[in-house]
Design a protein around this nucleic acid. Structure first.
Lengths: 355, 355
DNA sequence: TCAGCGTATTGCAACGATGCACAGGCGGCA
DNA sequence: TGCCGCCTGTGCATCGTTGCAATACGCTGA
């Protein structure tokens, strides 16, 4: 059956279009008799409002866009889940799109998609976007940035304290008595301000412990995937001064990749080399050894971003851009402390009883 | 700046609204002089077409919806990536939504969202939806179903041959000489037709090898997450007849969860117990041991689904519903064959900085 | 000079819905 | 009896865009 319109329902019920609209939306007072006649017609014609038309008229869509570089990177998919859930509580639907880190794609999404009235607001986790790209943008739909990049822009911005987090993670390794702690995941500024911040924290931790940084132990990776970590670890094992005795990876995928290289070569973790990651993805909690990591509070990140967006859409459209910080915590697990210390860590998993 | 409209651009350029529209869309012939004047005004006002209005007028949105139960389950996020990529080649944007397996949510999305003209088509991976729910649906926007459920419905449907795949995986384990092969992930029909099919394949493999199925080795799980697999494996280790010597898990998360239980208890894999999974998620390729699994061809699944949808949107709207099958293959890795057999299975090769 | 034609530009209606303000009918009260 | 006001229900304009078809214009050829 072709989609029916208010007009069709009105004709069938013998009332005006306007009255049908009132019944559907429960706006104005409608007599019981008219109401039931309209409802009958609605049911018979299987009428459903055309949201495109409604949204056009109302000037809002009830949809938020979440733009992330890669959906199949667990950090992003876990974050996406949090955002979707939070937004739903506010009555918003979240649509997700991935950019594959292509600047064109990111640009297109924030301009075409967002300021084209399709979305009421946008949450963007930029990977390849420069400040210039953003400045360029017409601010028709509010935008909240996730992560570190472009912190100086005119947009709201949610992040964790990457420097401190990296400092804590590195400090944890140094505190275990490791003397040669490598860093895996460094990136040049253009593509990875976040990486830069973590490197800064890595350096600070060394300073805290009165240690020199061995620059040759800072390994860059092009991306943050398993393969990059595995490759970087292999390179570190061939280090001219011998392998390091600990590795801080800038995310958990790198760390799991590094672990693969180590374990498949018979290196003992953490006895020979301790490994720490970043993001606290679920896979790390079930790996053997379980993965020590920095756990950003994803639920809070999602909440801050969504709340902010909704505030701008509602009664506070003109507040100055804010920098919002979400908490994080270091979660020591077997990959640094060994199995003895936390034998039941695997059991830990947030309950998911219904609701 | 408030969003500008065709009207504003027209006023500024001193031409009619219609001409601006023509310039923007490149439709009708426009003199170079007029064109440049309009383009100047467009730039000055930072005009961008209101897609809501355009879509309303044109009756299409260029957006497809992908509805999956859980985004942070790697199988779905990897599939989502494939769908997004494929659709982009056809000029469609994919918006993703997750249902958390809630029937209400799934229902809402396919009815409200889809038949409300927001999306041109929907790809749905249903978890909790009954045939009745679907029958109920007005077929305003084409729908393609992923996975096994509701195969008898009036919709296009893309799946892999789960029975054969499970049979091959189980056969692989039996072929290795294992005699007590457990199955983890069975579910009652209402929530898991896919699980039922895999159990059927598991039984067939036993028949192939002339073996009885020990019903007590078939373990049900409520969901398909790490935790479920870890729990099920723990239960199997306490089996009254002693642990099994192989386990076929109905997805990779279950398998990785099972591996966690085994490895943390010092059980040797695959020497003592071999483990196989299903889905071929990236994490399994970097686990130690690497995970033997059934690899569904996600790219083909995505392609079949998107192509089908687009065919219906285009010149073949009225073809009868089809059952489309995507290939799969068994990928033996260390968790069943041991490291000796495939020492270089891990993607990473030593050395190689940058690229 | 004018019919004839192609090019450039325009006005009007429509997509399907909602905001606003008012029309019609009824009962209550003076 | 007549006026007022409430309760229902409605018409019109509008959101920003595009489809259609007509207009205005300039140029060619006879």
């Amino acid at each position: 059956m072709a989609t029916s319109r208010l007009r069709d329902v009105a004709a069938r019920a013998g009332v005006s279009i306007r009255t049908v609209s009132n019944v559907v939306n429960g706006y104005a007072p409608v007599s019981d008799e008219t109401r039931s006649r309209v409802e009958k017609a609605v049911a018979e014609l299987d009428y459903r409002p055309n949201l495109l038309a409604r949204n056009l008229k109302q000037g809002r869509t009830g949809m938020l866009a979440l733009v992330v570089p890669e959906l199949d990177v667990p950090y992003f998919s876990e974050l996406a889940r949090a955002v979707v859930t939070t937004a739903r509580h506010h009555g918003y639907t979240v649509v997700i799109d991935q950019t594959d880190g292509e600047p064109d794609r990111e640009r297109e999404l924030i301009t075409r998609g967002a300021s084209a009235a399709l979305f009421d607001g946008v949450i963007l986790s930029p990977l390849a976007l420069s400040p210039a790209d953003l400045a360029d943008r017409d601010a028709s739909a509010p935008l909240v940035l996730l992560g570190e990049r472009i912190a100086d822009s005119r947009y709201d911005h949610v992040a964790i304290d990457n420097v401190t987090a990296a400092r804590e993670a590195t400090g944890h390794l140094l505190g275990l008595g490791r003397t040669r702690v490598a860093a895996v995941g460094d990136q040049p500024y253009e593509t990875g301000e976040t990486a830069q911040l973590r490197t800064r924290g890595y350096r600070q931790a060394h300073a805290d412990h009165g240690r020199e940084v061995d620059e040759s132990l800072i390994v860059g990776t092009r991306r943050f995937h398993h393969a990059d970590g595995a490759r970087a670890m292999a390179a570190l094992l061939d280090h001219p001064d011998g392998p390091p005795d600990a590795v801080f990876c800038y995310n958990d995928l790198l760390a799991l990749g590094a672990l693969r290289t180590l374990l498949s070569r018979g290196v003992r973790v953490p006895d020979d080399i301790a490994v720490a990651g970043f993001d606290d993805i679920e896979a790390g909690r079930y790996h053997t050894p379980t993965l020590t990591t920095v756990s950003p509070d994803k639920a809070t990140i999602a909440r801050l971003a969504v709340d902010r967006l909704i505030a701008r859409l509602g009664d506070r459209p003109d507040e100055p851009p804010a920098e919002l910080w979400a908490p994080h915590r270091l979660v020591p697990r077997e990959s640094t402390t060994g199995p003895a210390l936390r034998p039941t860590d695997v059991a830990a998993r947030p309950g998911q009883a219904g609701h």
